[in-house]
Design a protein around this nucleic acid. Structure first.
Length: 149
DNA sequence: GCCAACGTTGGC
DNA sequence: GCCAACGTTGGC
């Protein structure tokens, strides 16, 4: 089993949204490295759900992969902000796994607190310049963070 | 709103 | 293939 971190802007799609409607396809990722991570996800993998671009960014819950990635249908919708004319049904460019709600943290584990732990100095999320919305999490980092929740 | 950092685009 | 210009991300 592998571990991941998935970012979402809570104004767009929050942990509460996922709890209300689960599973959901993880759509809208339009970065090739992030896409490759999405395609590498296996059923049963777990991920931290991270709220970004909000008053208090941080980890707010845990989700699991319910189904491996298939074509991201939002790329076909001209009305969608994620529309991409270069992704076709014959040759999809973007993919979305089905993500299921697992649990919500009693309180947010804020980015500020994550940064305060020297054990997480090399955590991908905290690396300078990293902007990926999907990233792998090592077993060691997962365990350490899990114990902070 | 600012800005650092990175990705993408497109001319050459 | 290079690289300048532009767009996006995301914390602050």
């Amino acid at each position: 089993m592998n571990f991941w971190l998935l970012k979402s802007e809570p104004d767009e799609f929050s942990i509460d949204d996922l709890r209300r409607s689960s599973p959901e396809p993880w759509t809208g990722v339009r970065n090739y490295l992030a896409r490759n991570y999405l395609r590498a996800m296996k059923v049963g993998d777990q991920a931290f759900f991270y709220h970004s671009s909000c008053a208090e960014p941080g980890i707010v819950g845990i989700v699991s992969i319910q189904q491996e990635a298939t074509a991201d249908l939002s790329a076909y919708d001209p009305q969608s902000p994620y529309f991409d004319a270069n992704s076709t049904r014959e040759k999809p460019r973007w993919f979305a796994p089905q993500v299921a709600f697992s649990s919500k943290c009693r309180s947010i584990l804020s980015l500020r607190e994550l940064k305060s732990h020297s054990e997480l100095a090399r955590f991908t999320l905290l690396q300078k310049g990293n902007r990926l919305s999907v990233m792998p999490v090592s077993t060691e980092h997962w365990q350490f963070i899990f114990n902070l929740l």
